[in-house]
Design a binder for these strands. Sequence first.
DNA 1: CCTTACTTGCTGGCGACAAGCAAGTTATAA
DNA 2: TTATAACTTGCTTGTCGCCAGCAAGTAAGG
Lengths: 192, 192
Amino acid sequence: MSEQMMTEAAVSLLVERGIAGTTLAGIGERSGYSRGLVTHRFGSKAGLLAHVHDSIAAEWLRRVQAVVGRATGVAALQRVTDALYKFIVDEPKGLRAMYLLRYASIDPSAEYRANVAKLNKAHVRALTRWVEEGQAHGEIAAEVDAGLAAELFASVVDGLLYRWLVNPDIPVKELHGLMRAHIARALRAAQA
Amino acid sequence: MSEQMMTEAAVSLLVERGIAGTTLAGIGERSGYSRGLVTHRFGSKAGLLAHVHDSIAAEWLRRVQAVVGRATGVAALQRVTDALYKFIVDEPKGLRAMYLLRYASIDPSAEYRANVAKLNKAHVRALTRWVEEGQAHGEIAAEVDAGLAAELFASVVDGLLYRWLVNPDIPVKELHGLMRAHIARALRAAQA
DNA sequence: CCTTACTTGCTGGCGACAAGCAAGTTATAA
DNA sequence: TTATAACTTGCTTGTCGCCAGCAAGTAAGG
C-alpha cells in the first residue's frame, strides 16, 4: 500500500536531507506516486511526520517490551539501555529519523509537541514503576526518589541520542557499558 | 545598532513561535526595521540563527568560566551544573532559544551543524581536562575513563535541557541536586 | 455509477536576491 | 573656507522560485 511506501521514502529522505530539506513532492515521487498524494493521505506535512514518528516509536516500544520482559528494578533499566544500543546498531536510520522528529517537536510551531510531551511522560511513568518495583524487592535503596531517578535516566538516554545524532562517532558501545554500571551503582547506593 | 535589536527580536520570536514560525520579515518589523534588513545583514536565515546561537553560547561560556574559576575535578563539574541551574532560572528565554537552535542543528539541511559538533567537542575537551586534573590530584579514581565520563556528563546536561524544553514543569531544582550527588559518587568510586 | 486511489492546477507565503535610495563622509580643487 | 564631486553606509522595495496546502478532476474496479 502507498502509505507504507511513502513512510519509507519519508524516512530515507529525512535521514538524507533533514526535515526542512524533505519536501512532500519529493516523498511522493521517490515512493513512485505523484507529488500531491502525501498531502492527500496525511492531510499535512505535520500529519505525515507524526505518522512517521509514531510508527518508529511503536517499533521501539515493541523492542523494549521484548527485551525487558518481566524484569524489574536495575535489570529492567539495564535492559532498556541494551535495547537502545541494539536499536542504534540495527536500525540507525529509523532511530535517527525518530529522534530528528522528536527534537524538532520542541519547536512551539510544531503541533506535534504535545504528543511528544505525553510520550515522554509515559516513558517516565514506566521507568518509575520499574524503580519502585526494585525498591519493593529490596534491591533498590528505599531513599531513592523513583520519579526523579526515572527522569534522570530518560534524560541520559535522550542526551546520548542527541549527541550521537550530531556526531555519530561517539563511542556508543562504551557509553552503553558505562550507563549500565552507573545504573547499578546509583540505585543500589543511598542517595541525597 | 540594528544587529543587536534584530538579535533580540529574533530571540523573543524564537521563544514565542519557534524556528519555523519565525520569519525574517517578522524579525525585521518587530525590531523596527524593514522586512529585508535581516537578510541583508546576516546573509540568510541560517546566518542569523547562527549569530543568535553563538551570542547566547558566548554568554553561557562567560557564566561557566565565572562560576568554575580555578576549580577542577568534582567541584568543577558540580559548578557547571550550578551554572546551568542558574542560567535556567535567570535567562530561560535565552537558554531556550539557544537549545532550540542547537537541537534544530541536528537536521542535515542545517549548514550550522558542523559548528555545533565542533562546539560539543570543545565542551567535552574542557570537561575531560577537569576530570583528568581531579585524577592527578588523587580525588577522582584512576580507573575512570575521563573522556567517557565527560561525554556522559555532557549527555546528561543536553538531555535534561531537552526535557525541560518539552516540559518546563520537570523538577529542575531536584534534578540539579541529584546530578551533583551522582557526579561525586560516580567519579570517586571505581568504574567498569 | 459510485467509491476508492491517485493526479493536476493553482494560490499564498516565505527566503533569497538585486536594484535602488537617502544620508552621511571623505576627497578635491578653486 | 567652501563648493561639489565621489564614494560609503544603512536600509528599503520589487521580484523570483520553491513549497505546503487546497480543490477540482480523472481513472479504474466492483
